[in-house]
Nucleic acid binder design. Structure first.
Length: 297
DNA sequence: ACTACTCCCTGCCAGC
DNA sequence: TGCTGGCAGGGAGTAG
């Protein structure tokens, strides 16, 4: 589920519940996520206020009043849910309704944040590829999880010149290059496929072919950057894509999956105007790629 | 330094 | 119906 648009959607959903609120209580039901939560995880959260909730690539970053930053990643199947008790409902009653509402998913609700605002924020992750880690803010620049990340694709630093430089001389496919978080941070399997289709570039094309030998951008790089920015912007506007899990923090669904042009559309007609091609599925680096061999060159 | 592959874990679905 | 294999949005670690 979670690529940049989904994570950004989650961030916006969590913001009202968490920003400015204090962790009144933190429950860890299962600490063995991608790696075990630190022993002092709860202690470093409880009593601290969230001063800001940001995002870097697919990571959520909660700044705390203690000077720590809580880093959260959704992995493949992670989601957050915000339960907001009605104003007149007391704490115990709210808890009861929360557990009732969440009963069917309780086995995968690994962490629950009880915020001073009354909101209860749960982290649910069946596959447990998600993760949480707390580091002091000053150490963030050196944080191994974040250190090697490429630029934010919606930021000013991400342009054709930069992308061409990063792809210069790369022996791998364009698809593999774009999914590499060191080249550009936040794209995943879905949005790489969608962006390449919009740019009419084949996922099999050598990454180096979007740059001149000296590393300058060519027309392909320009188109690709435009396509990436557009597809991400469109997806965020639609609340991301919901495939197998929902992801909006109120339990609702993202809508962008209805606008996929190639992803998960094997055998269906290409959606490029004037193209009569058929979407094909291939495997690259062990993952599915969807593309139109007719209009993507 | 690169690139490709394996593995982490659970759930779901098509095919037998 | 019930089992089995394959596949899933990510990415760290490792072997070439």
């Amino acid at each position: 589920m979670p690529e940049l648009p989904e994570v950004e959607t989650v961030r916006r959903g969590l913001q009202p519940a968490m920003e400015g609120a204090r962790f009144a209580k933190v429950d860890v039901h299962r600490g063995d996520l991608r790696w075990p939560l630190a022993k002092d995880f709860v202690r470093r959260l409880e009593g601290k206020t969230v001063t800001g909730l940001g995002r870097r690539a697919k990571y959520l970053l909660a700044d705390l009043s203690s000077g720590d930053v809580l880093i959260m990643h959704l992995g493949m199947s992670g989601s957050f849910h915000v339960f907001r008790p009605k104003q007149k409902t007391g704490g115990q009653a709210a808890l009861g309704r929360y557990y009732h509402e969440r009963a069917q998913h309780a086995t995968h609700d690994h962490v629950a944040f009880h915020m001073s605002s009354g909101a209860i924020v749960t982290f649910n992750d069946p596959r447990r590829f998600g993760s949480m880690k707390i580091v002091p803010r000053p150490n963030l620049d050196a944080e191994p999880l974040l250190r090697g990340l490429g630029p934010e694709p919606l930021g000013n630093a991400f342009d054709a010149a930069m992308l061409a430089r990063a792809c210069r001389g790369k022996k791998t496919s364009l698809k593999a290059a774009l999914i590499d978080q060191r080249v550009v941070a936040g794209l995943g399997n879905i949005y790489v496929c969608e962006a390449l289709h919009r740019a009419r570039l084949s996922p099999k094309r050598l990454a180096a072919t979007i740059a001149t030998p000296s590393g300058a951008p060519n027309e392909r790089a320009e188109h690709l950057v435009e396509a990436i920015k557009h597809v991400l912007t469109d997806a965020i506007r639609d609340g991301g894509s919901s495939l197998r899990d929902h992801k909006l923090t109120d339990g609702g669904l993202g809508m962008f999956q209805h606008h996929f042009r190639v992803y998960d559309r094997e055998g269906e007609p290409c959606r490029t105007e004037g193209c009569s091609g058929t979407v094909k599925r291939i495997v690259q680096n062990g993952r599915s790629t969807f593309y139109c061999p007719t209009c993507q060159k």
